[in-house]
Structures are given as structure tokens and as C-alpha cells.
Design a binder for these strands. Sequence first.
RNA 1: GGAGAGGUGGCAGAGUGGUCGAAUGCGGCGGUCUUGAAAACCGUUGAGGGUGAAAGCCCUCCGGGGGUUCGAAUCCCCCUCUCUCCGCCA
Length: 429
Amino acid sequence: MHDIRVIRDDPEAFDAAMGRLGVGPVAADVLAVDERRRTAIAAAEAAQAERNAASKQVGAAKATGDEAEFERLRGLVATKKDEIARLEDEARAADAALRDMLLRLPNAPLGDVPDGADENDNVEIRRWGEPPSFGFKPKEHYELAAAQGLDFETAAKLSGARFVVLQGAVARVHRALAQFMLDVHTTENGLTETNTPVLVRDEAMLGTGQLPKFAEDSYQTTNGWWLIPTSEVTLTNTVREEILDEAALPIRMCAHSLCFRSEAGSAGKDTAGMLRQHQFEKVEMVSITHPEKSLDEHARMTRLAEHILERLGLAYRTVVLCTGDMGFGARKTHDIEVWLPGQDKYREISSVSVCGDFQARRMNARFRPEGGGKPEFVHTLNGSGLAVGRCLIAVLENGQQEDGSVVLPSVLVPYVGGTTRITANGELT
RNA sequence: GGAGAGGUGGCAGAGUGGUCGAAUGCGGCGGUCUUGAAAACCGUUGAGGGUGAAAGCCCUCCGGGGGUUCGAAUCCCCCUCUCUCCGCCA
């Protein structure tokens, strides 16, 4: 959520920022509502001040026994009461209207974010590793003999399209990947392992920006809970309505969780395989930082995600998302794309965003500056570290052999009982 | 699912109709003392908003909304959240 004062101070700059996202111009509309709100507040407060003054005189009149004056002032207070109620209603309505407008506006991109329409305009900033060369045409993950434990038919029987059942070796490797990621993050990267609910209330979804605008992207239970589309929601909202000590920053967390997305509007995209599912697992990283530290933290977090791929020996490239490809709450986003031989292209496996104080304002998450002073909004960041299902895909495709077996990354060996590959029969050996 | 209790300032916790934005403690900040620190002592310390160049002035806030009253943190109603006990259950 944007600071209305920023829009007030420089509406042209704000419209320019929104314009880069293809939104607006909106400043004029926002400021009109803001003006209405401030006028209503001023009127209501003036009436309240009058009422307060009259109220005091009521007591005085009664004390001096001036019955006539007492009755007159009582009448005046009673009249003001109705006027105040009416003006307060107006002020409340205008305030709600302004808040609703602000809650639906996306975050402003940082100056160094490239302009662009879609993913084709993202800018590559790094590349690591060599895509493996095969003496045969590499297959996609769901075509591999070793991955016969990926069972889409059974999943369809249970749940429908865009679900998968993992059985045997692939299930074990999937679990191994999540464990490996968590171990690296907690023992080497200093993130605090956190396990959160996957069902949350409206406020949490509002805090990170899924609501009010993107309700159709998530699932909701009959009694009103939302299934989180990412544990960014729960990890970030842990500081909702908090005033933290500055010394407590940065707060760095990670969580392995289920994620649920209805993926409305993306029907027909990536329908084959387990690349895009309604339910998937992800290890998520979230940092709560001092405003001056968030950009450094963004670089750090990006490196942590990249490092996981390096340890797994998977080639990747890192891109800066252009304005047209960025998410609602981000000021800048790095996507890390892993090489998928079966598709012969890099595909997103992590997205690392710095949100500035955008989410903090929604959550009212603040910190008390060292040495006292007014609370300030914290900055929030989130990043996948990594998407577990997609990582499984990458491991399968990159490790595939001509006979349909798969050689596993050596770092996973301790996590899969000392085995090193999945045979063409779908067994760990 | 049943029954009950409760939501007060950064935290803990008083306050049941009249200067209560709110006792007290902790924490924070400033100071005295000390070679320095600790302890002790003194002072100070809520948040949001409107207006203003600023100083300042003003308004609101004791979970949210409504009501009673000249007057509500205190009484009544609705909502919401939390906790406790019982039941059920992984």
C-alpha cells in the first residue's frame, strides 16, 4: 500500500511509476477521494471541538444554577451530536474508499527495473553452469522411465487435472530435496526454520497483497479461511501489527510448506507434467529488514537461492523481471530459471522480491528505531528457496541417461539412503 | 460441538459512570552518582490523524460497531478475536 502523502507530494511522479506498470493515471482520482476524506475529517473534528467546548459549559451552567443556560447548552450538544454522527459517517466512508483504492494499486517498480511488456523483456544478469549435453534427445520429466512414479492418472482420479501422485523413488527424492534445502538454509544461511499454518484469515492475505484484488487466484474454505498460495503469506504476516526492536532486525525465516493456487486464467499453459499444479511444495525464505538494508538483503537472498542450485549442480540463469512481468507487491524481482533439457529452455524455479514498505504498511508492521523515536515501517522480502516440485523436475531431466535412468546430484545421496541413481525401473539404487 | 472467562499504552497489569490517555511495574530515553560499568535515585517516555513553513493548535483511540447518559475504558446490545474446561479427534 502506498503512502498517500507520497502521492500528494508528487502526483506526476506517482502516475509515472504506475504508468510503467500499465496502470493509470490514477493520482487525480486518488487525490480527489483524499480531498473528500480530509474535508470530511476537518468538518467532523470542528464539530467535535464545538461539542467539547459546549459540554464543558454545560457543567459550568449547572454548577452556577443557571437552568436556562443549562437547557440551551444541552440542546446545543444534542444538535451537535447528530451533526457529528453524520460528518463522521462521511469521513469514515471517504477513508474506507481511499483505503480500498490504495489497497488495489500495485507497488511501484524501482528505478533500475527494466521497462517491458512481458517475460521476453526480462533482463538476464547472471548465468551459472553449463546445460548438460546429451548424446540423444533428452526427454521431459514425465516421459522418463525413471519417473514412472509420477502418476497423473491416479491423481486425476483423486482430484482432477493439475495434480500428481508421487510414489516410490520420485517421492523420496522430492522429500530429499526439501530436506536438503531446509538443512542448507538453517545450518549455513542463518534462516530460522518455521512451520506455519496453510489456512489463514483475510487479514493475512490482505497483508501480503493477495487480497483484495486476487481472490480468484486462491482457494477458500467454506468457513472463510484461505489456503496459502505460498508461505510468504504466513512468514511475512508473523510481524503483522508488531512494533519490533530495531536490534531484532533482520529477521530471516524459511519454511517448507504446501502451496495452493487455482491458477485461474492460465488454463492451457504447461498442462503436461508437474510443472504447474494446484498444489505444490515450496521452501520459502522471508526477511524482515531495516529500510536501509533491504536492497542488500535482496542480493543476499537471491544468492541463497542460486546457491541451492549450484550445490545441486543445476545450470541456471538469473533475470531481473521487467515491469510487465512483475508481481503486485514487488519493487524489484529476480527470477532464477533452471535449465530444463526436456524443454530445451530455462524455466522459473525461484522468484526473489523486495517489497519495500508496501506489505509493511498493509500489515502495520513497524520497528522502534534504536535510541527511541517514532516507529517506522519495516521492509519485507520473500523468495523461493526453492520450489520443490520444479526442482524435482530439474533433477530428473538434467540427470537423465539414454536408458531412461537418472543420476542424482551427489549432495542428495545422504538424503536418499546412500543411493546415487534412479533406475529405468523407477527404483533407487 | 458444549460451557465459561476475557480483549486496556512497547510488554505485564490496575481501573466498574465524572479532568482517565488512563495507576503501578518492566522496558526505552535523559540525568545524578561512579575511574568506567552495574546497582540505586531523579526526571522523562503511547499510537493514529487534521491543520501549519515551523513552533504549535486541534481531533480520535482502552478489540470493532451501535445504544443508554449532560457525561462511558467503566452500563446494555451485536460482531469479532483470544483463553480455560468438557466432548470429539490426527
